[in-house]
């Protein structure tokens, strides 16, 4: 482990912590513009986090210690995910700690904690949210795994760093399988981040909520942590998507300068990604919860097709 790598790791984590709320703010801003509303300030998520941290925590009377522990655990999981996913550089000392499969596991762990916390107070909406979250989770996971399988077939590895390095270094070749996997990954990310066709991050209509229903009982610093963790998750998924499907510009091992150069590129990529996300959310309507299986089933199908096409066209051709 080099000093440069260590610094790079710390820098990546700090960058994730700082950039994640900014990304959320940017998406909200884009969406407001696209919907002809006046946009909130770009830094709105920071103001909100600061305000929430200052406020008292109001706990339901029968909230258990698990309820208070869960936000920290979820935040920790997301931070770990952000530390592993190469945003600027593939030279991360923490990267060998988890490959893509373990990354899916980290997200799963966070999901379990937040679902359990949702069930803890024992309200109607909480358990509704927890149940739906697990529903989305078990539908999204197989699709995500098939995406990973396709990528692993191309790069002969499940380690994120190796996949990124393989894909960034290849000559420009059109992989239909990669395109399929990319679309499937987009679908999965939308579902996992409680975005529009599956969930609506801006909703306040109780019966349609998933993510919001789970965190109804949270307040103060706990809510702040959960919101921050949600931003981190969006950031993590965005970076993962960028790293897997648009890996150009991510710095290689032992190259601190390239890493600095990668930062503006990352910002541009995230900016475009945020715009696209806002556009998707504007164009689509939220679907009924029981259409979600079909949506994620389509993602699964795409990923499997990607895998099969890879096996048919690209391995044997």
């Amino acid at each position: 482990m080099s000093v440069g790598g260590f610094l790079g790791q710390l820098f990546a984590i700090a960058l994730a912590l700082v950039l994640a709320p900014l990304l959320t703010g940017w998406v909200n801003q884009c969406r407001a513009w696209l919907q002809n509303r006046s946009a909130p300030p770009l830094l709105q998520p920071y103001y909100m986090l600061h305000k929430l941290f200052r406020k008292d925590v109001v706990l339901a009377r029968n909230a258990s210690p698990l309820f208070r522990f869960a936000p920290f655990a979820v935040f920790g999981c997301m931070l770990l995910a952000c530390a592993i996913i190469p945003s600027l550089s593939t030279d991360l000392p923490l990267a060998p700690a988890a490959d893509t499969l373990a990354l899916v596991g980290v997200f799963g762990l966070a999901r379990i904690f937040i679902s359990l916390a949702a069930m803890d107070v024992g309200t109607a909406f909480g358990s509704l949210g927890g149940r739906r979250e697990m529903l989305v989770g078990f539908l999204a996971e197989p699709a995500l795994l098939m995406v990973i399988f396709t990528l692993a077939l191309i790069s002969q590895s499940t380690s994120v760093a190796t996949i990124v390095e393989t894909l960034a270094h290849r000559e420009i070749v059109i992989y239909p399988s990669l395109a399929f996997a990319g679309i499937a990954f987009t679908f999965v990310s939308l579902a996992e981040n409680a975005r529009v066709p599956v969930d609506n991050p801006a909703t306040h209509l109780e019966l349609t909520m998933i993510h919001e229903a789970m965190i109804l009982e949270y307040s103060g610093r706990h809510l702040a942590l959960i919101e921050w963790a949600a931003s981190l998750k969006l950031y993590a998924y965005s970076c993962l998507g960028l790293a897997l499907f648009f890996p150009w510009g991510i710095a290689e091992r032992d190259n601190f300068l390239a890493m600095i150069a990668a930062a503006p590129l990352l910002l541009i990529k995230l900016g475009i990604g945020g715009c696209l996300l806002a556009a998707i959310e504007t164009v689509n309507a939220k679907m009924r919860i029981f259409r979600a299986p079909e949506f994620l089933g389509t993602a699964f199908l795409l990923a499997v097709l990607g895998l099969l096409v890879r096996l048919l066209l690209e391995v044997r051709a």
Binding site: I154, R170, E171, V173, I174, Y175, P176, A179, V309, L313, E314, V315, A317
Partner: peptide
């Protein structure tokens, strides 16, 4: 792996 496959074949595959 896919090296050497001409662009036309890639396009057709796509």
């Amino acid at each position: 792996m896919n090296a050497g496959v001409p662009l036309s074949a890639q396009l057709i595959n796509l």
